[in-house]
Amino acid sequence: MSVTARLNRMFAQDGKCFDVAIDHGFFNEFSFLSGIENMKHAIDTVIQANPDCVQLGVGQARQYQQIPGKAKPGLVLRTDAANIYGKELPRHLFSELVDQAIWHAVRLDAVAVCVNLLLLPGQPELHHQCVANISRLKTECEQYGMPLMVEPLVMLPNEVSGGYMVDGDIRKIMALVRQGVELGADIIKSDPCDEVSEYHRVIEVASGVPVLVRGGGRASDEEIMNRTYELMKQGASGIVYGRNVIQHPNPAGMTAALMSIVHKDAAAEQALAILKGEQENG
């Protein structure tokens, strides 16, 4: 069964996608709840901003799909819960799949599912678990025509970075992205590298699989707009931003500004002007 039908709902006619991730409550970290404490309000705000997709866990996806109307952004369903994001790593690390995740995805009318491919220093068992998770999901995804978004995530040692800090080494990112592609990813969700101008190498190693770039932690409006513009110029097929949208004082304005970069090739200055205009109108 082909994944094309759902991919066509995920990506716009220009082949680009902006997916707003509001699945952070899945990971049992208090700081991740900022901006999404009131999930109904967060979901309503994102829907009104009209990105291409919204990324949610199983529980909140149920609430999302109860909202009437056919013009909602597509649902990307998060399929695994991990405990690797705190400032101190617990004794036992895991990235656990939701039971019958693809059944839930079909039932909830998802356009894709998202799963981690984690690479933490000195944690080969966790990486092995992620590879096994992807392999298991891939078989079911093919059976039901469900696109598989793999999220390769290279992290720095906790004792160096203090928790949930990505490693921007392009060599590590390229190798992990390629592993995700080899495991059967239909979409890659990847971090930017330290030198954004080299990101075309990540696009190349993905071998034609569309690459959506993760937003990561909060950054200034100027940094986000400039980085996003450059990443799109490097060949990215879109972005998956969460905290830089939902923790922003004006999530709807931020979404509109980023959509202009993703879909209209707007420069960073133009996007910042859109954000400023949305803030003044708000």
Score class of each variant (00 low, 15 high):
Ile173Gly: 02
Pro90Thr: 07
Ser31Tyr: 05
Gly74Ser: 14
Asp19Cys: 13
Glu230Ile: 11
Val111Ile: 06
Arg201Cys: 02
Ile224Met: 07
Ala256Thr: 14
Leu176His: 07
Val111Trp: 01
Pro147Tyr: 03
Leu148Thr: 09
Arg214His: 05
Asp23Glu: 02
Met10Asn: 03
Glu195Cys: 06
Val166Lys: 07
Asn28Phe: 00
Val113Asp: 03
Gly168His: 10
Leu117Pro: 03
Leu231Val: 08
Gly277Phe: 05
Asn83His: 08
Leu176Glu: 06
Gly122Glu: 00
Lys72Arg: 15
Asp186His: 14
Gln279Glu: 12
Met39Leu: 12
Leu118Lys: 04
Gly168Phe: 05
Gly86Lys: 09
Leu126Asn: 08
Gly216Phe: 05
Glu278Gly: 04
His200Tyr: 14
Asn226Ser: 14
Ala21Thr: 07
Ile246Val: 04
Cys193Glu: 00
Met155Pro: 00
Ala175Val: 08
Leu137Trp: 02
Gly180Val: 05
Gly15Phe: 13
Gln66Gly: 11
Glu125Ser: 15
Gln63Thr: 09
Val106Thr: 05
Ser161Leu: 12
Glu142Cys: 06
Glu142Asp: 14
Val20Thr: 08
Gln63Pro: 01
His24Trp: 10
Leu119Ala: 04
Gly216Thr: 06
Arg218Lys: 13
Thr139Met: 05
Pro210Cys: 09
Ile187Val: 15
Lys72Tyr: 04
Gln65Cys: 06
Leu89His: 07
Ile47Met: 12
Ser34Lys: 15
Leu183Cys: 07
Val160Arg: 12
Val3Cys: 10
Val20Arg: 09
Asn116Glu: 14
Lys70Asn: 09
His263Tyr: 10
Asn158Gln: 07
Leu89Ile: 02
Gln270Met: 07
Leu117His: 03
Leu231Pro: 02
Asp169Arg: 13
Ala256His: 15
Leu183Ala: 11
Asp23Val: 04
Ser237Thr: 10
Met155Arg: 04
Phe27Thr: 07
Gly235Glu: 12
Ser197Pro: 01
Leu153His: 08
Thr45Phe: 01
Tyr85Arg: 00
Cys17Ile: 04
Val58Phe: 06
Ile187His: 01
Leu97Asn: 03
Arg171Tyr: 12
Ala5Trp: 03
Ala273Ile: 02
Arg171Val: 06
Leu108Ser: 13
Tyr64Leu: 07
Met165Thr: 09
Val150Thr: 07
Leu126Ala: 10
Gln63Tyr: 08
Asp194Lys: 14
Leu75Gly: 05
Pro152His: 09
Val150Pro: 00
Leu93Gly: 00
Thr79Asn: 00
Leu118Ala: 01
Ala12Gln: 13
Gln63Glu: 09
Gln123Tyr: 03
His104Ser: 15
Asn83Pro: 02
Leu176Thr: 13
Gly180Pro: 08
Tyr199Met: 13
Lys40Thr: 11
Ala112Val: 10
Gly238His: 01
Thr139Ser: 10
His24Thr: 05
Glu230Gln: 15
Gln270Leu: 05
